[in-house]
Amino acid sequence: MPPADDIVYLDHLASTPLDRAVLEAMLPWLSATGAGNPHSGHRAGWRAADAVEAARAEVAALVGARPGEVVFTSGATEANNLALLGAVPEGWPVVVSAVEHPSVLEMLPELARRGHRTAVLPVDRDGRVDSADLAARLEAGPAFVSVMAANNEVGTIQPLDELAALCRACGALFHTDAVQALSTLKLDMRGQGIDLLSLSGHKLYGPQGIGALVLRDGLALRPAILGGGQQEGRRAGTLPVALCVGLGAACRLARQRRDGDAARLRLLRERLFGALSARLPGLRRNSPADGLPGCLNVTLPGLDAADLLLDLPDLALSTGSACAGGRGGPSHVLLAMGRTAEEAHGSLRFGLGRGTTEAEIDRAAERVAAAATSS
C-alpha cells in the first residue's frame, strides 16, 4: 500500500480533509486551557458555552436559519434519524425519494411499525424527483416529506424550491438531507421554505463526529437521547466544544468559499470526464452535467468497479456511498435511475474537492484508463 502522501484523494463525497483553518480554530479547545463543560455554571463553563453558541450562529448563517433552530448531533445520520423519528406528527404519512441516503430509507420500516404510512418517490434517469409525483402524493393531505438536496452518489441536485412550495401549499413538512450540497451550493431555509435540514461536519472540511439538525421555530421534536436536558431538551448529552467550534469554522469557510470552489470544481470535473472519455470510448456518464460540481459518476461497461479499484491502490475512489459500501449489492441509487445491476457494478464515483489539482485529475484519468484497458 503506498504511503498516504502518494495517494490521489478523490473521495471527498465520503469525507473531506479537515481544513487547516478549522483545525486551528479547534486546537485551543483540545488543550488544557480549553477545559470546561459548556453546561456548567462557572467561568470555564461559560467560556465554553459562548464558543458553542458562536459556532451555532455560524451553522445557522450557512443555511439561512436562526441560531436557536440548530440542534447539534453526532453527524447527519443521527440528524436524519432525529428528523424522521422525532419530528413526524402522529399518524402522518412519510414520503421520501428512492435515492435517499440509507439513514433515511432505513427509517421507513420503523416508521411503518409506529403506524405511519410510507411511500417512495421514483426518480428519472438523472436521479431527479418529479414535482408532479409529489403533488399527487400530497392530494390525500399533509405528509412529512424528505428529499435530499444533492445526491451523494451521482450528484443530482433536486428541485428543492418546487418541492418545498408544494409542501407549504398543503401544510406538509419538508426535510432535506443537505450533507453533500453545502460546500458548493447556497441553501436558504427561510427563503426556500425548508422546515428541517440535516448537515455534517466531515462533508464541509470540518471534523468527523459532529453535525446538526436545523428545524424551523415552533416545530415539535421528540428527543431520541434523554438524560440531561441539554439543547433545550431536544438532544441530551454534553456538547463536544472542540467539535462544535470546528463545525462552526467549517460553515464560516463554506460561506466564504462555496462560489469559488464550485466554479473551480466544475472545470476540474469536466476535465476529468473529457480525459476519461478520450481514453475509454465506451464510458457512460451517470452524473448530470448540472449536478454537484465535484461529483462524477461513470460506468465502465463490462468491468467490475470493485475489482478495478484493487488495481488502483494509489487512487482513493469509490464505487458508491461509503455508508452502503459493506452491503456488496448494486447501488440503490443507480438502480432507481434505471441502470441495470451490471451497469451499477461497473460504476465509479469520483469526488473532487478543495485541494484537488489538475495534475491529480490527469494522473487519475491515466491510471483508471490503463487499469480498465488491461482488465
Results as ranks from 00 to 15, higher is better:
7 I>E: 00
13 L>E: 00
21 A>N: 07
37 N>Q: 04
41 G>Y: 11
42 H>S: 05
50 D>T: 13
56 R>Y: 08
57 A>H: 07
58 E>W: 03
61 A>I: 08
66 R>D: 13
68 G>C: 07
70 V>R: 00
78 E>F: 15
80 N>P: 04
84 L>A: 04
88 V>T: 07
90 E>N: 01
91 G>L: 10
92 W>Q: 03
98 A>R: 06
98 A>F: 06
106 E>D: 14
110 E>D: 02
112 A>Y: 03
112 A>S: 14
115 G>I: 11
118 T>Q: 04
125 R>Q: 14
130 D>F: 04
134 L>M: 11
147 V>M: 09
152 N>P: 00
161 D>E: 15
172 A>M: 12
179 V>F: 09
185 L>W: 09
200 S>L: 04
201 G>H: 00
206 G>K: 10
215 L>M: 15
221 L>T: 02
224 A>E: 10
224 A>H: 11
227 G>E: 05
228 G>H: 06
230 Q>T: 14
233 G>A: 10
244 C>L: 07
246 G>F: 06
248 G>K: 00
254 A>W: 11
271 R>C: 05
272 L>E: 04
274 G>Q: 10
289 A>K: 00
296 L>I: 02
314 D>S: 15
315 L>V: 09
325 G>T: 04
325 G>W: 03
326 G>H: 11
332 H>T: 12
346 G>H: 07
356 T>F: 08
367 R>N: 10
368 V>C: 12
369 A>M: 11
370 A>Q: 15
374 S>L: 13
375 S>N: 07
